[in-house]
Design a protein around this nucleic acid. Structure first.
Length: 879
DNA sequence: CTGATCACG
DNA sequence: ACGTACGTGATCAGC
C-alpha cells in the first residue's frame, strides 16, 4: 500500500468556507466562520483519506510572476473582504498549532506549490490528493493525483473528485488540455482574459479537435464559427498570455522535507486553547483534555463538608451584599452547592452526611433574605429553594441571553470569557466528562467540586460587568421588569404542571393504531410491495420511480415528499391521500399519544420545562414535552386536548390575544388606516380585503379574505413576493401586486418596515417596543440569501418580540395577582398568545376579570388589545 | 448527528 | 442571478 499525501489550497478553501457559511463571530467579535469551515472540511477529508502527509499552501501577498503578467495587461485583483482577510493569519495560527506544515513562496502562487509537490510526490510513489475550490487545479490530475473540489449548495458540502479519467469524462479533454480550455475561455475569477467570443462550447470543440491552441492556429481556417476564428486570429497574443496565466508551474524551486509534513497528533493543547478562544465547541470533543493545563483559579477553592464549617460559611455569606451560588441539582435531588463570597473565596459544600440537600436549601433561603444570590440558572435553584422575591436574585444566564439572544447555550466558561476579559475557564466537559451531576456525585468526583466553584465564581465575578452592559444597552428595565419576575412565574407553571388523563390518551392511541394498520395495508397494496412509509427516501422511490408520478425532485437527498408538494403534484392519486392520512395519524400517535403518555409523572400531571433563554425574538419555548404545539387546527388532532383536564373542583380558563402581532404592527408603524381598521372591525382580514381590493365590506369573497389574511401574515414575517406566492399558489407577479396594493392601503407600513431594515443595518440589531434587542449579523452579509434573510428578520423580530414582551408582562401580573389575592387558581400554560389557568370553580369570575384586566392592560397601544376567553372542563372545551 | 417532516404560534 | 416566508421542538431514518 503506497503512502498518501494531502495537499490543500489554503486560500481557496478558506474562501469557499467564508462564502459558504454564515458569518460566525466569537464573543470578542472576531470573525471565525471561514476558519471553522476550513477545519470542518479538513477533518472530513482526513477521516476519508487517512493520509500520512499533509501540507497546506498559501499565496504570499506579494505580486507573483503570473500576477505581474496579468496586471501588466489589466488592473489589479479584486480585494478580499476584511472579514475574510483577518481570518488568514488566524487560519495559519491554527494550522501551526495543530502541527500542520504550511508552505508559501515569494513569487509563486499556492497553485504552483501544489503542482510542484504533486508532481514530486507522485514521483516518490505516493498517492496524491489535492483539495481546492479552484477548477484550474484539474490540469494536475493523473491516475495517482486526485483533485477534490468541495461544493457547497444549500448549506451542505459535497465533494467532486477527479482523477485524470473523471476530467476526461466531464470535460472531454485530458488534464493538461484543461490549460488550453481555460486559456481560450478565460476565467474572470482567476483573471484570465481568454479569447473574446469563445465560450465553453467552442473552446471544448476546438481542443477536442486540435488538442492544443498552437495546433488550432495551424488549422485556423478549419475552425467553424466564423466569429471565433476571426477573434482567435486577432487575439493571438491574448491566447499566449492566457495560456501562460493558466499554466501551473510544477517545477517551483521549493525546499521541502517530507518528514516535516508527516501527520502527527493534530489535537494539541495549543490547538485546543485556540479552539476555545474561537468558541469552536463542536471540535472540543476531538481533544484529549485530560492532559491540558487549564488557566484555573482553583487555588482559591475550598471544600466545606462539616456542619460547623458550613454554618460559619453561610453566616459569612449572609453578610455580603451579593454572592455567587451554584446549586447542583436535578429532578432527583441536590448534590452540592458552590458559593463565591468574593473573587478569591470560593467554597464547595457537598451533600454528604449531616449536610443534607434540605439543610443546604433551607440555609440558602435564609441567606437570600439579606443578600442577593447570583446564579447562572436561578429557575433550577427555585425547584429546591422556595424563594419568592425577584429582588433577591440575579440570573446571569437570563441576563446574558438578553445581551445576546442568538447563542444556543449559555455556559459558564462562555460567560466568563465574554465578561471577564477573555478568561479561559475549563468547560463542564473538562471537569465532569460526560457524567451527569448524579453520576459525578456518586463518584465523589473532584470535578464536581471544581465545577460548582467555577459556576459560583463566574456568577459572582460577572454580575457587575453584566449589569453594566444591561444598563448601557438600555435593557436593564426589560431584565428587571420582565425577565427576572418571569423566572418565578415560569417556575410556578412548571411545578404545577397540567393534569392529563393517561388512560384516555392510551385509548386514543389505540384507536389511531387501528386506522394506521388499515392504511398501511392499503398503501402496500397500491405500491405492490412493503416498504417503510416513514422513510422519505423509500417513499420517494415508490412514488416517483415505481409508480411514475411526474414532477418529482426537490431536496438534495432526493425527492421531496412533503405534504404540500404531494398535494400539488398528485391530489387525485389515492395512494397519496392514504400516505398523507398515514403521516398525520402516525404523527399524532408517536409524538402526542405515545410521547405525552411517557412523560406523565406520578402526580398524574405533565411538567413541561419553559425555557427562557432559547429564542432569538424573546418568546419562551417549551420542552420535554413541548406543550406549545399540541394539535388544534385539525379536528382529529384537536381531540387530544380533551385529555388535558383541570383538577377536580377546578375548570380551565383559556384566554388568547386576538391578532396581537398585527395590532403591534398597527401601533408601532403608527399607520392611521390600520389603527382605524382595528377600531372598527371585528374581522380584520375581511376589512383588509375590502380595502385592498376596493370592494364593499359585505361583498368580500372568501378567496379575497383568504388572500388578505395571507398578506397580513406575510407582512409580519417580513414580506416577500416569493413567499406569498408559495403560500397562496399564485404567481410571483400576482403576489407582488397584492403586496403593493396592501402598502397603498396602509401607507405607513412600508416606511415602517423599511425603517426597521435601515435601522438594523446601521446599528446591527433591531429592538422591540420595550427595548429587547436582537442582533442581526446577516444584514451585513455579502451573500444575497443571507442578507435577505436578515432583512426579513429585521421586519419580523420587533413585531414578534414586542408581542412576546406583552404576554410576558401579562403572565407576570396574572401570576402575581393570583398569589397576592390568595387565590387557589394557577397559571399552567403559555402558548405565545394564549394563557391557560386552572381555575378554582368559585374563583372563575375573579380570575376571568384578572385575566382580562392584566392581558388587555399589559401595555397601552394605539389599538386595543383584544382578548378571547373561554371556560371548559378540558383544554379542548376551553379553547 | 443531520435532514426531512410536521405539530404549534 | 442568487432561492425564501418568521419563531419553535419531537420523531424517525439513515449515515
Amino acid at each position: 500500500m503506497s503512502e498518501k499525501i494531502l495537499l490543500i489550497d489554503g486560500h481557496s478553501i478558506l474562501n469557499r468556507a467564508f462564502y459558504g457559511l454564515p458569518d460566525l463571530t466569537n464573543a470578542e467579535g472576531k470573525h471565525t466562520g471561514a476558519v471553522y469551515g476550513f477545519l470542518n472540511i479538513l477533518f472530513r477529508i482526513l477521516e476519508e483519506e487517512k493520509p500520512q502527509y499533509l501540507t497546506v499552501a498559501f499565496d504570499l501577498h506579494e505580486p507573483t510572476f503570473r500576477h505581474k503578467m496579468y496586471e501588466a495587461y489589466k488592473g489589479t485583483r479584486k480585494p478580499m473582504p476584511e472579514e475574510l482577510r483577518e481570518q488568514v493569519p488566524l487560519m495559519k495560527e491554527m494550522l501551526t498549532a495543530m502541527g500542520i506544515k504550511i508552505v508559501s513562496k515569494a513569487g509563486y502562487e499556492a497553485d504552483d506549490l501544489l503542482g510542484t509537490l504533486a508532481v514530486r510526490s507522485e514521483k516518490e510513489g505516493m498517492d496524491v490528493t489535492i483539495l481546492s475550490g479552484d477548477r484550474d487545479l484539474l490540469q494536475l490530475a493523473t491516475e495517482k493525483v486526485m483533485i477534490r473540489l468541495p461544493k457547497t449548495s444549500r448549506g451542505k458540502t459535497t465533494i467532486e473528485n477527479f482523477h485524470a479519467a473523471e476530467v476526461l469524462e466531464k470535460y472531454q479533454v485530458t488534464p493538461p488540455q484543461i490549460i488550453e480550455l481555460k486559456a481560450l475561455m478565460g476565467d474572470s475569477a482567476d483573471n484570465i482574459p481568454g479569447i473574446p467570443g469563445v465560450g465553453e462550447k467552442t473552446a471544448t470543440k476546438m481542443i477536442v479537435e486540435f488538442g492544443t491552441i498552437e495546433n488550432a492556429y495551424v488549422h485556423l481556417e478549419e475552425i467553424k464559427p466564423n466569429k471565433a476564428r476571426e477573434s482567435l486570429r486577432e487575439h493571438y497574443d491574448l491566447a499566449e498570455l492566457s495560456k501562460a496565466l493558466a499554466t501551473i508551474n510544477t517545477e517551483s524551486p521549493l525546499e521541502y522535507v517530507y518528514e516535516e509534513a508527516r501527520l502527527g497528533n493534530l489535537y494539541t493543547p495549543e490547538a485546543y486553547q485556540l479552539c476555545k478562544q474561537l468558541e469552536f465547541k463542536n471540535f472540543f470533543g476531538r481533544f484529549d483534555t485530560s492532559a491540558v493545563p487549564e488557566n484555573t483559579i482553583e487555588q482559591n477553592f475550598f471544600t466545606c463538608s462539616d456542619l460547623g464549617g458550613a454554618e460559619a460559611l453561610f453566616k459569612k455569606a449572609a453578610e455580603k451584599n451579593y454572592i455567587g451560588v451554584a446549586l447542583l441539582s436535578d429532578k432527583e435531588g441536590v448534590y452540592g452547592l458552590g458559593i463565591a463570597l468574593t473573587k478569591g473565596e470560593i467554597y464547595y459544600v457537598p451533600v454528604e452526611g449531616l449536610l443534607t440537600g434540605d439543610y443546604i436549601c433551607a440555609a440558602l433561603k435564609e441567606i437570600a433574605d439579606s443578600t442577593i444570590l447570583c446564579s447562572i440558572d436561578v429557575k433550577s435553584m427555585l425547584k429546591h429553594v422556595g424563594l419568592e422575591d425577584a429582588g433577591h436574585v440575579f440570573d446571569t444566564g437570563v441576563a446574558v441571553y438578553l445581551l445576546n439572544p442568538l447563542k444556543s447555550s449559555y455556559t459558564f466558561d462562555d460567560i466568563a470569557r465574554e465578561y471577564l476579559d477573555g478568561a479561559l475557564l475549563p468547560t463542564r466537559t473538562d471537569l465532569l466528562g460526560k457524567d451527569s451531576l448524579k453520576a459525578a456525585w456518586e463518584k465523589s468526583s473532584d470535578g464536581l467540586m471544581s465545577y460548582a466553584c467555577h459556576l459560583a465564581y463566574t456568577a459572582y465575578a460577572t454580575r457587575e460587568p453584566i449589569e453594566n452592559a444591561l444598563k448601557e444597552t438600555e435593557m436593564w428595565n426589560v431584565y428587571r421588569e420582565i425577565e427576572l419576575p418571569l423566572i418565578f412565574t415560569l417556575d410556578s407553571m412548571e411545578k404545577w404542571g397540567i393534569r392529563v388523563k393517561g388512560e384516555e390518551l392510551k385509548s386514543y392511541g389505540e384507536k389511531l393504531q387501528v386506522r394506521i394498520a388499515e392504511l398501511e395495508k392499503l398503501i402496500y397494496e397500491q405500491a405492490g410491495e412493503e416498504f417503510n412509509i416513514n422513510s422519505p427516501k423509500q417513499l420517494g422511490v415508490i412514488l416517483f420511480e415505481k409508480m411514475g408520478i411526474p414532477g418529482g425532485r426537490k431536496t438534495k437527498t432526493g425527492y421531496s415528499t412533503a405534504a404540500d408538494i404531494l398535494e400539488k403534484l398528485a391530489p387525485e392519486q389515492p395512494i397519496v391521500n392514504d400516505i398523507l392520512e398515514y403521516r398525520q395519524l402516525t404523527k399524532l400517535k408517536s409524538t402526542y399519544a405515545d410521547g405525552l403518555s411517557a412523560v406523565i409523572e406520578a402526580d398524574g400531571r405533565i411538567h413541561s420545562t419553559f425555557n427562557q433563554t432559547i429564542t432569538a425574538t424573546g418568546r419562551i419555548s417549551s420542552t420535554e414535552p413541548n406543550l406549545q404545539n399540541i394539535p388544534v387546527r385539525m379536528e382529529l388532532g384537536r381531540l387530544i386536548r380533551k385529555v388535558f383536564v383541570p383538577e377536580d373542583g377546578y375548570v380551565f380558563l383559556d384566554a388568547d390575544y386576538s391578532q396581537i402581532e398585527l395590532r403591534v404592527l398597527a401601533h408601532m408603524s403608527g399607520d392611521e388606516k390600520l389603527i382605524q381598521a382595528y377600531r372598527e372591525a371585528e374581522d380584520i382580514h375581511r376589512l383588509t380585503a375590502s380595502q385592498v381590493f376596493h370592494v364593499p365590506f359585505d361583498e368580500v369573497t372568501d378567496l379575497q379574505r383568504r388572500n388578505a389574511k395571507a398578506v397580513n401574515f406575510g407582512i409580519v414575517y417580513g414580506i416577500s413576493s416569493f413567499g406569498l406566492s408559495q403560500d397562496l399558489s399564485i404567481t410571483r407577479k400576482e403576489a407582488a401586486e397584492y403586496i403593493e396594493k396592501y402598502f397603498e392601503t396602509y401607507p405607513k407600513i412600508k416606511g415602517f418596515l423599511d425603517g426597521l431594515v435601515a435601522d438594523g443595518k446601521e446599528k446591527g440589531y433591531v429592538s422591540t417596543m420595550l427595548g429587547r434587542r436582537r442582533p442581526i449579523p446577516e444584514l451585513k452579509s455579502g451573500n444575497f440569501m443571507q442578507r435577505s434573510f436578515g432583512e426579513r428578520v429585521a421586519m419580523n423580530s420587533p413585531i414578534q418580540g414586542t408581542a412576546a414582551d406583552i404576554i410576558k408582562i401579562a403572565m407576570n401580573r396574572v401570576y402575581q395577582r393570583l398569589k397576592e389575592e390568595g387565590l387557589q387558581s394557577r397559571l399552567v400554560l403559555q402558548v405565545h398568545d394564549e394563557l391557560l389557568i386552572e381555575t378554582k370553580k368559585e374563583e372563575v369570575e375573579t380570575v376571568s376579570r384578572i385575566l382580562e384586566e392584566e392581558m388587555k392592560g399589559a401595555v397601552h397601544l394605539s389599538v386595543e388589545l383584544d382578548v378571547d376567553m373561554h371556560e371548559g372542563n378540558s383544554w379542548y372545551e376551553a379553547k
